[in-house]
Design a binder for these strands. Structure first.
Length: 684
RNA sequence: GGGGCUGUGGCUCAGUAGGAUAGAGCAAGCGCCUCCUAAGCGCUAGGUCGCCGGUUCAAAUCCGGCCAGUCCCGCCA
């Protein structure tokens, strides 16, 4: 299904060409949502910028354009307003038909992209031997959300956790581990590194105080890089411990990410230098290997270097990033590579991308994009700290959100005299608490700093997750009562979405058998034909040619390999069904016909139909707050509808129509929230 | 000194590729539960879009300059 905006756009484009011919450039965007509801639903402002090139009055241009546009069943008679705006109002019947098409569709009519890409999302990226703290919150939440949306749009997403598991700090840690807990290195599980942060702090203290320790640390780095057995074991120990701790957080937040740390690229670093040298951009300066940057200068106005190898032979993180970029383009075959890191690294990325481009690692057919985000600040506007002035552990932060939600819930239940099971209360508190943290982060424009406030994110009114979850719960309440009337049976939540498609399998099997029969036949025929001179050679040539064609089409180039993978994956989906947890929606219980008579119904219906446009936009611009805004407005519009339009008490056929509208709203909320990484509740 | 990001009602923020009277939410004031969860809805008040200039029929949006905040600027990541 194509979105309404896209359909209007299509019709206006055709009308435009009919009116003014192909040589007049069409102003973009041609169709935009109306700036004010009183102007209708959509508007076309194309007449205004054309006044000059066409030497005509904008209103006349608009008239001419309208005379050539076929709007037929979609819109009411278009209005010409002001200096030359064209206002469009959609017909209720058309809206109803469009909505009806979404009923029971697990993707709610949102088409998959026509140009699927392999997208690499680099996010979260905590450091080994340090605990995850607020600093990792935004990358983790935003990265996961973008990955979910891109996956839903039909892209092949690789979620990479570029953990800091390599670098100079390990020298310090290993040296300290050897010094303080030597038994940990010789005996398995001799030491439970329960508190890695404490270990890190102690090591840092030793490092700052003791020069001999500093020296030993530097040597330990070299030993580790050289593959020294003992150092490697210490390193492994630290990594395993950290990994376990990270996983606790990821499980809690329902986040999937594949670890591929900095150490992974270690063997590839010398190749990066070779590549830079071959490209002729590598220079030595004060013993370090550098690439001098274009457009970056230091205080004296000299070109700034990007150091790729230190004077002591060690590599920098820029080198690792270049190696990673190379790997992601040439091995992973990524088309779009997204880095979700704080805004402070903007310089670093433009520098790395520039060097990669000049070295030929990065080519024009690959899109690299830094998705920056601002700091998490406390309510005092400063960097978020605990009362004692330490960085806030992510675990504590999440626990606190859940704890506060629970407290509030208990009070509310007591006030209403309700009794609920412990399991219910826990689930509600956990879902609301964690969703509030996620939503608060995602609903803000990520480029600016954001002020972390439990009171605001857990507030029940305003643009918060509790508000959205409540709107969903209200609908579930209606559905339960409706089902109680034995009219419609609500399906149990989320049946498993994958299953073997016997029919598709049978077709495949049949085709295989047919292929074998044909092969057998052709061999027999071939046998007979052998008597004809030259024919065998010709056939061989044909076979050889096909082999060549196949290799060049499907094996030689990344795009071909992707097509091949796509074909295989397509077949697999056909037979075994998509494991599409995101879009796992229960089918609508009824396929009621919709009647949109009142204003709140129309407003809600129009909003429901904008989902696809919003998702397409987030896919491009990578701003999750747009989706949040959409869902918030949807909840508001539903609440207005709920207030003004009785559902269960309405007479048929209005009742069924409104129930269907409720169902579509619930499905949209559920899908939208799932793309933010938030689960819904049926009852609060 | 150079560069990045930010600056919109008391507070937190939207504002999509310039378009009609700049939108929400919180906080404030007033009102609405015999009716599907009031964790809701309605109404009121509050803005020289940091400042100055330019481009344009039209600028919060584009360009230039300035001011403020913040981050980065040779061997940390």
């Amino acid at each position: 299904m194509t979105s309404i905006q896209a359909q209007l756009n299509h019709r206006f484009t055709q009308g435009f060409q009919a009116a003014f011919g192909p040589e007049v450039a069409i102003p973009q965007p041609l169709i935009v949502p109306a700036s004010n509801p009183k102007f209708g639903d959509y508007q076309c402002n194309a007449a205004l910028p054309l006044a000059k090139p066409l030497q005509q009055k904008p209103r006349d241009i608009a008239q001419t354009l309208l005379a050539h546009v076929q709007l037929g069943e979609m819109c009411e008679e278009p209005e010409l307003a002001g200096p030359g705006f064209i206002n469009l109002r959609l017909k209720p019947d058309y809206l109803a038909a469009q909505l009806a098409a979404k009923q029971g569709d697990r993707r709610l009519g949102v088409a998959e992209t026509k140009e699927p890409q392999r997208v690499i999302v680099d996010f979260s990226s905590p450091n080994i031997a340090k605990e995850m703290h607020v600093g990792h919150l935004r990358s983790t939440i935003i990265g996961d959300c973008l990955a979910r949306i891109l996956e839903f749009r039909g892209h092949e997403v690789v979620r990479l956790n570029h953990v800091g598991d390599w670098g100079t700090q390990f020298g310090m840690l290993i040296t300290y581990l050897k010094e303080a807990y030597p038994e940990a290195l010789t005996t398995a599980d001799a030491l439970d590194l329960g508190d890695l942060v404490a270990l890190y702090k102690q090591a840092k203290q030793r490092f700052d105080q003791d020069e001999a320790f500093q020296q030993a640390s530097r040597e330990a780095v070299v030993a580790l890089q050289a593959g020294d057995e003992e150092s490697r074991k210490a390193w492994q120990l630290l990594c395993d411990q950290s990994r376990r701790e990270f996983q606790v957080i990821y499980d809690l937040l329902d986040i999937e990410v594949t670890e591929r740390g900095e150490s992974f690229y270690n063997p590839l670093l010398p190749d990066v230098l070779k590549t830079l040298e071959t490209a002729g951009i590598l220079q030595e300066d004060q013993g370090a290997q550098c690439v001098f940057l274009e457009g970056f200068s230091n205080k004296e106005g000299q070109p700034l270097p990007l150091i790729v190898q230190k004077s002591d032979g060690g590599f920098n993180y820029a080198t690792t990033d270049l190696a990673a970029l190379h790997y992601r383009i040439h091995q992973d075959e990524g088309d779009r590579i997204i880095y979700v890191t704080d805004a402070g690294q903007a310089n670093h990325f433009t520098q790395v991308f520039q060097v990669a481009r000049r070295a030929g690692i990065l080519t024009d057919n690959v899109e690299v994009v830094h998705v920056p985000f601002g700091l998490v600040q406390g309510e005092d506007g400063k960097k978020l700290k605990t009362r004692s002035g330490e960085t806030v552990r992510l675990r504590d932060l999440l626990d606190e959100a859940v704890r506060r939600t629970r407290e509030d819930l208990d009070q509310r239940l007591a006030a209403e005299g309700r009794t609920e099971t412990e399991a219910f209360k826990q689930e509600v508190a956990q879902t609301i608490g964690l969703s509030a943290v996620k939503y608060a982060d995602l609903s803000q424009n990520r480029t600016s700093n954001y002020i972390f406030s439990y009171d605001k994110m857990l507030s029940l009114q305003g643009n918060t997750s509790p508000y959205l979850l409540y709107a969903y719960v209200r609908i579930q309440g209606i559905q339960r009562k409706a089902a109680g009337g034995a009219l419609a049976v609500m399906p149990e939540d989320l049946p498993p979405v994958s299953g073997i498609r016997w029919r598709a399998l049978a077709v495949t099997a049949l085709l295989t058998v047919v292929a074998f029969v044909f092969m057998d036949a052709s061999i027999r025929i071939h046998h007979e034909l052998h008597t004809i001179p030259l024919l065998a050679e010709v056939m061989r040539l044909v076979g050889f040619g096909y082999g060549l064609w196949f290799a060049s089409r499907y094996l030689l180039f990344p795009s071909g390999r992707r097509d091949l993978r796509g074909m295989v994956a397509g077949w697999w989906d056909e037979c075994f069904g998509p494991v599409d947890a995101l879009a796992a929606l229960p089918p609508s219980p009824s396929m009621a016909s919709l009647h949109l008579d009142t204003e709140p119904e129309l407003v809600l219906a129009k909003h429901l139909l904008q989902l696809e446009d919003v998702l397409a936009e987030v896919e491009q611009e990578l701003f999750p707050n747009r989706l949040c805004q959409y869902l918030f407005e949807l909840s508001q519009k539903f609440n207005q509808f709920f207030e003004q339009c009785p559902v269960l008490k309405a007479a048929e056929p209005v009742r069924s129509s409104r129930l269907a509208l409720c169902q579509l709203t619930a499905d949209t909320l559920k899908l939208g929230l799932s793309l933010l990484g938030i689960r819904v509740l049926d009852r609060i």
